Amino acid sequence: MTSSFDRDSYEVDFGEQDLTGAEQERLVSGRAETADRDAEAALRPKGLTDFIGQPQVREQLSLVLDAAKARQKAPDHVLLSGPPGLGKTTLAMIIAHEMNSSLRVTSGPAVQHAGDLAAILSSLEEGEVLFIDEIHRMARAAEEMLYVAMEDFRVDVIVGKGPGATAIPLDLPQFTLVGATTRSGLLPAPLRDRFGFTALLDFYSSADLLTVLQRSARMLGIESELAGLEEISTRSRGTPRIANRLLRRVRDWAQVRGSGLIDEEAATNALRVYEVDELGLDRLDRSVLQVLCKRFGGGPVGLGTLAVSVGEEADTVETVSEPYLVREGLISRTPRGRVATTAAWKHLKMQIPANYEF
């Protein structure tokens, strides 16, 4: 059977592979350099004890894994849900590491045919962990095959076409599926219900991000002061991936234009160069706010009009920029469109119109 598995999935050798996937933040334009990708991979914790933040998820997952090890069986299937950059891929790696198993990785968009999934599943070995990133983007035919595979560890391979087609059942080894999604609401209920454990990852506090940065600075051999790392943590949008990326960019500035030490001044100057302001807003975020306030008087404005005005796709504004602006209380979504809050006017240092109603 022909499969796209070799092309779209791979097996992980812990400590050597980088599983970041498609980068979704726009803090630095273009793809990350190879050195940055290697550095990010090296910073991933290998076990649950090294994983920072998400204390409730860590405790729950620890119980699931410890119980599975005591029974000497594969743990239940795990669904990890949450915004990008919070550690879903890292947790999948940790699950495989804790179970002394290997990790197979693929993504929802890569599995567009039932045959692709059948080839992946049939190549698994006993106790392996299969990680499907963006699982909500799998094709419907593959999803329906996955139902039986998750529940009965079996796939039915269709041989032939038309009235003469025959379904041949193929038994699968016991495996653990780890699914990751940024939009759990798009998962069909039959698939969601087959996961034995579901974890919702939330944004990190500045204190947890500071701990992440301190660990990363030690591992990268970066000389830093607490004030400098605190400045980075408050501008990292509650996301460890962004925090580590900004740490490397501030390190670059400190080495080229500073003394090599990451202090508060170095962090502030470096983040100004990379257009990350004190709230963590980047250029696109500020463009959305400025268009909303300056051109449309604070709104309401439809998403399509807003996206055209800033020169971006509507999906980019809605999924990348808007969630953080809403979470920070800078814009509000109403039935009539997007509306700037008083906090947005204050952040832009603009005077609120006398007749403005929010």
Score class of each variant (00 low, 15 high):
residue 1 M to H: 14
residue 7 R to H: 13
residue 8 D to C: 01
residue 14 F to H: 13
residue 14 F to V: 15
residue 17 Q to H: 12
residue 20 T to I: 12
residue 25 E to D: 15
residue 27 L to E: 15
residue 28 V to K: 07
residue 29 S to L: 15
residue 30 G to L: 08
residue 32 A to I: 09
residue 34 T to I: 13
residue 37 R to N: 03
residue 39 A to I: 09
residue 46 K to S: 09
residue 51 F to R: 02
residue 52 I to H: 02
residue 53 G to I: 08
residue 54 Q to W: 08
residue 58 R to H: 08
residue 61 L to T: 01
residue 64 V to M: 02
residue 65 L to K: 11
residue 67 A to G: 02
residue 70 A to N: 12
residue 70 A to Q: 13
residue 72 Q to L: 00
residue 76 D to P: 09
residue 76 D to V: 13
residue 77 H to G: 02
residue 80 L to M: 03
residue 84 P to L: 03
residue 87 G to I: 10
residue 90 T to M: 08
residue 90 T to N: 07
residue 90 T to Y: 00
residue 91 L to I: 11
residue 102 S to I: 04
residue 104 R to Q: 11
residue 105 V to P: 00
residue 106 T to C: 13
residue 107 S to N: 07
residue 109 P to R: 03
residue 110 A to R: 04
residue 114 A to G: 00
residue 119 A to N: 13
residue 121 L to M: 11
residue 125 E to D: 13
residue 126 E to P: 08
residue 134 E to T: 00
residue 135 I to K: 07
residue 136 H to T: 10
residue 145 M to T: 05
residue 147 Y to K: 04
residue 150 M to A: 07
residue 154 R to T: 05
residue 155 V to K: 03
residue 156 D to N: 15
residue 157 V to I: 15
residue 157 V to C: 03
residue 165 A to T: 06
residue 166 T to K: 14
residue 168 I to P: 01
residue 174 Q to A: 13
residue 175 F to E: 06
residue 183 R to I: 07
residue 184 S to H: 06
residue 184 S to A: 14
residue 185 G to S: 11
residue 189 A to H: 07
residue 192 R to P: 01
residue 197 F to H: 09
residue 197 F to Y: 15
residue 199 A to S: 11
residue 208 D to T: 10
residue 211 T to A: 11
residue 215 R to D: 09
residue 218 R to G: 07
residue 222 I to V: 14
residue 223 E to C: 12
residue 227 A to N: 06
residue 227 A to I: 08
residue 229 L to Q: 01
residue 235 R to W: 08
residue 236 S to M: 09
residue 239 T to E: 00
residue 241 R to Y: 04
residue 242 I to M: 07
residue 245 R to V: 00
residue 251 R to Q: 15
residue 252 D to L: 14
residue 257 R to A: 10
residue 258 G to C: 11
residue 286 R to N: 12
residue 290 Q to P: 06
residue 290 Q to C: 14
residue 290 Q to M: 14
residue 296 F to M: 03
residue 301 V to K: 00
residue 302 G to T: 12
residue 309 S to L: 10
residue 309 S to M: 13
residue 311 G to C: 09
residue 312 E to R: 06
residue 312 E to T: 10
residue 314 A to K: 08
residue 318 E to W: 01
residue 323 P to L: 06
residue 324 Y to G: 05
residue 324 Y to D: 12
residue 326 V to Y: 02
residue 327 R to E: 11
residue 328 E to L: 11
residue 330 L to D: 02
residue 331 I to A: 04
residue 332 S to N: 00
residue 333 R to E: 02
residue 335 P to C: 02
residue 341 T to D: 04
residue 341 T to R: 03
residue 341 T to P: 05
residue 345 W to G: 06
residue 350 M to S: 04
residue 351 Q to V: 01
residue 358 F to G: 01
